[in-house]
């Protein structure tokens, strides 16, 4: 028996060309370092603004500065789940392998941001509220989001057959995305009944412009980081999936020679 290889090399025209893993692999390789550099530069600027330019908060003191990491991480964790659901839907409808790979490449980054948001939130909570954890609506739904990420990752890792893993993961990502607003709403409802407004997370009404600027720059940095890491992970997944094909052999040979 000869070495197995793919039967199909569809060659669509235009931008859709990059939906083929073979075409996307070099593109991702070219783009990822740029995004990574942008992430590094933006993080440096954001942290500089956050720690040296932004004024000390008159209520919370220096502790508040953790929001420069906390808030972008929380935003990203939610956004990434939505993006995953988007790629899952695209994959199920159009039957494109690359969409599923994108979906799976994003999940660990999303989970990481989710965990980061929870962790920094706890560190902020101790000096501010006197406790690491309160069963506040936002914290609780963030925690449940983390569980959703874990479920997705565990399911896609547990299924051996890549095709089945792709599709099963896509379904659970979509089911989760439908449930995220329901979970958020229910947790909020539960929270108001049990806790009243004793602990409020609402920020100071007027945020200094520099604080806002620092946060936005950090958010942008988180975007760049997520894109760069996802692209690298997509490359790794493509290599793993297509390791039997001729083009992967050629790519690996060329990279070996370059080294």
């Amino acid at each position: 028996m000869t070495t197995p290889s793919r039967a199909v090399t569809r060659n669509p025209e235009g931008i859709l060309r990059f939906a083929a893993p073979q075409q996307f692999y070099p593109l991702a390789g070219t783009l990822a370092p740029w995004f990574a550099q942008a992430a590094a530069v933006l993080t440096a600027i954001g942290l500089y603004i956050g720690f040296f330019v932004a004024p000390t908060d008159f209520q919370q003191g220096e502790v508040y500065r953790v929001i420069f990491i906390h808030v972008p991480a929380a935003w990203m964790s939610m956004l990434i789940y939505l993006v995953m659901a988007f790629w899952a839907a695209v994959g199920l409808v159009l039957n494109t392998r690359l969409s599923f790979i994108m979906c799976q490449a994003l999940a660990p980054t999303g989970a990481m941001f989710c965990f980061l948001a929870l962790w920094t939130g706890a560190l902020w909570g101790k000096p501010t509220w006197g406790t690491y954890w309160v069963w506040d609506a936002r914290l609780t739904s963030q925690l449940l989001l983390l569980f959703l990420y874990f479920g997705f990752i565990a399911l896609t890792r547990a299924i051996e057959d890549p095709r089945r893993a792709d599709r099963a993961g896509a379904i659970i990502a979509l089911v989760g995305a439908v449930n995220v607003p329901i979970i958020y709403f229910s947790v909020q409802w539960w929270n108001t009944l049990h806790q009243g407004a004793s602990v409020s997370l609402t920020k100071a009404p007027s945020m200094a412009t520099t604080m806002l600027a620092g946060m936005l720059v950090m958010a942008l940095a988180a975007w760049m980081y997520a894109i760069a890491v996802a692209l690298w992970r997509v490359r790794a997944l493509i290599l793993e999936r297509e390791r039997h094909t001729e083009w992967v052999g050629e790519v690996l040979e060329a990279e070996g020679r370059a080294r």
Binding site: L144, F147, L148, F150, G151, A154, L155, A158, I172, V175, G176, N179, I182, I183, F185, S186, V187, W189, W190, L193
Partner: peptide, 20 residues
């Protein structure tokens, strides 16, 4: 175990409204 991990977070709203 995987089933529990997948399903339990989705059960939370039902639990909240049911016990609530």
């Amino acid at each position: 175990m995987l089933l529990a991990l997948l399903v339990l977070p989705l059960y939370v709203p039902v639990l909240i409204f049911g016990a609530g």
